[in-house]
């Protein structure tokens, strides 16, 4: 772990890591270099935040882990990724889901023409036809998200944004994950809902033992729930540390917690890109 600068004190107490990302470089379309050596670690049972402005490379990092990158013509060209001790950087998403690592994509991505319950059931796809267990897990998801039970037969396209986020998380839960990669669950939601969803994630972490890697722009919220955080800028980790320390760090305060207005502006120079219309995009 060349890049993970941890104080010796915390390192000694850290449980074994479930996910290790070691110095990865990601290139899209063979030419666009987006991640320039990112390393991070998620301890077993931990909640780790991946912070950074829009375009910093958070989603790319998560997609590199889940290998959704492949379908976007992205590629991990350097470094490696280990999940539960096994190298997974050349594994398909299908394989990773079977191993227990699943991503909840940015923007929720529910199946709009399927009902909420059908959405949840697609999450159990990799588990084959184990009907009894799947049915039990469906009930489990409904105990965490009682609202979804009420809306179980509505088309996912017609429910509210908060309910869609719950559906997306519930769907992932149906795969019986040990690790969830959550990509900006707070996006576009009212603060109260964000809190409700983060509380549920916390419960899932505590009760179901799901480890969480949480990509967020909502730094304030994320650092409340995570134990550790990494800050990405332009495809590099520029800072990392325990959440409590990051919250007190003057730079983080200035740039990410919005305490100084000037600083915020300099991080708003969002790079935009245009993609050509492609098949499956």
């Amino acid at each position: 772990m060349a890049q993970a600068k941890k104080s010796p004190g915390t390192a000694a107490e850290t449980p074994p890591s479930i996910l290790t990302v070691n110095n990865i470089e990601v290139i899209y379309d063979h030419v666009i270099l987006v991640l320039k050596g990112v390393s991070l670690e998620v301890p077993q049972g931990g909640v780790v935040a991946l912070l950074g402005a829009n375009g910093a490379g958070k989603s790319t990092t998560l997609k590199a882990i889940s290998n959704l990158l492949y379908a976007e013509r992205g590629e991990v060209t350097k470094g490696n990724i280990a999940f539960k001790g096994d190298r997974v950087d050349a594994r398909s998403t299908n394989d990773l889901v079977k191993r227990g690592c699943i991503q909840v994509m940015e923007g929720r991505h529910c199946f709009e023409h399927l009902t909420v319950e059908e959405n949840l059931l697609t999450g159990a796809y990799t588990r084959g036809n184990a009907r009894k267990e799947i049915k039990d897990d469906l009930e489990l998801v409904y105990t965490y998200f009682p609202r979804l039970k009420e809306r179980r037969s509505s088309l996912a396209g017609y429910i509210s944004g908060g309910e869609q986020q719950m559906t997306a998380i519930g769907r992932a839960l149906m795969s019986r994950p040990v690790m969830m990669l959550l990509d900006e669950p707070s996006m576009g939601l009212a603060p109260q809902l964000v809190e409700e969803i983060f509380e549920i994630v916390k419960l899932l972490n505590e009760e179901q033992g799901v480890s969480v890697l949480l990509a967020e722009q909502n730094t304030n919220m994320a650092l409340k729930y995570a134990q550790y955080g990494y800050i990405l800028e332009n495809g590099r980790v520029v800072m990392d540390g325990p959440a409590a320390e990051l919250r007190e760090n003057p730079d983080v305060k200035e740039f990410y917690l919005g305490i100084s207005e000037e600083g915020r502006r300099s991080f708003r120079n969002v790079r935009s890109y245009r993609r050509r219309k492609r098949w499956l995009n």
Partner: peptide, 8 residues
């Protein structure tokens, strides 16, 4: 994409 993400 979502289908891929759940392991289909």
């Amino acid at each position: 994409q979502a289908a891929l993400s759940v392991g289909i």
